[in-house]
Design a protein around this nucleic acid. Sequence first.
DNA 1: CGTACAATCCCAATAAGTAGGTATTTTCAG
DNA 2: CTGAAAATACCTACTTATTGGGATTGTACG
Lengths: 188, 188
Amino acid sequence: MLSGNAVIIHISPIIQQGLKNILLARNIGISDIMNAFPECSVLSEWKNMLLFVDTQYAEEFKKHGKIMKKNGNTVFGIGTTMSANQPDLYFDEILNIYDNADIILQKINDYGTGVSDYKSNNQLSAREIEILTKIALGLSNKLIADQLFLSIHTVITHRKNITAKLGIKSISGLTLYAALNNMVDSHS
Amino acid sequence: MLSGNAVIIHISPIIQQGLKNILLARNIGISDIMNAFPECSVLSEWKNMLLFVDTQYAEEFKKHGKIMKKNGNTVFGIGTTMSANQPDLYFDEILNIYDNADIILQKINDYGTGVSDYKSNNQLSAREIEILTKIALGLSNKLIADQLFLSIHTVITHRKNITAKLGIKSISGLTLYAALNNMVDSHS
DNA sequence: CGTACAATCCCAATAAGTAGGTATTTTCAG
DNA sequence: CTGAAAATACCTACTTATTGGGATTGTACG
């Protein structure tokens, strides 16, 4: 299930796509990806959205900041330097492209209260990771139980705990999460 | 392991994923994504590969550059500043993250003469691909039907055809297929 | 010693997907 | 124009997943 709406405003196609992948891995839906600021009429329509904006757009942002922060929107700046950028008047939080995925998602979670209940994957136990990899490989609960010599109930319980910890409900979301976190070898 | 002939060596997960998406869209397979330089023994095994390396790794690169350029490999530096980085002793070409996708792919094409399409041409229809992307996003048949103004039966029928054509039964398998073929896209 | 948590097991109800079909309309290349 | 493929819609029976409760061990930590 998609559990949120995000807009990416960044001129770099690499960062657009990279952020897209990371957000999609968490099943955070992306409403739009744009290279520059849209018209105010568009801005004012966003409600309860996650906005990801290049920190270098600070000047443009001054003109639109108030509108963007209206209606429950959360604005994340995307920094491209190693230097520690701090949240400021314009941005609720700064995402640095050198942050690892866990940190990025944690920052999003801190502000995206309506988005999901994210917890970093280091809170997954070894057994849960083991289960998750098998889910991502398309095995049914029954097969996982057989392979690990567990009852199917145990597998289901692990699964419930995994979805609770990650905030990812769908099989495809878990699969993407596992793939993007190198938990599963993918062969095309 | 992803199959293909490109390797991404970059600490930023956003850039890793973003470049991955752009390369996959170009049918360039990705063999590996890593955060730091591997052992020389690994480096020396690469042949006719496209290597994408953070320009900030220049120091490490000095030690490994010769090996990396051996065996027909092409080395692209990934720059993160607006300043115009030029190809140099270490890098055959500099990709700037602010380059648009066309320029990035043109630069790659100029050097990636040995690149071959790794992706099998899928025999899926446009509609089936549309359905598949939504499956990979974790949408239920019901939601897919609603979004595309179809009945749930039609979605199920498409789904059956997709699984028949690809020989992939599980949701996670379809998700990985969609991800590896760059079909996973933001919902609009 | 008590708390937290991982790992294990169980049940029942509901939701969702799969596996067999059949069948009409639309689109498009020959 | 015609046939093939695609897209659409429907059905039943069946399997699997999800949800929301329980519960019991064992172990690590202060």
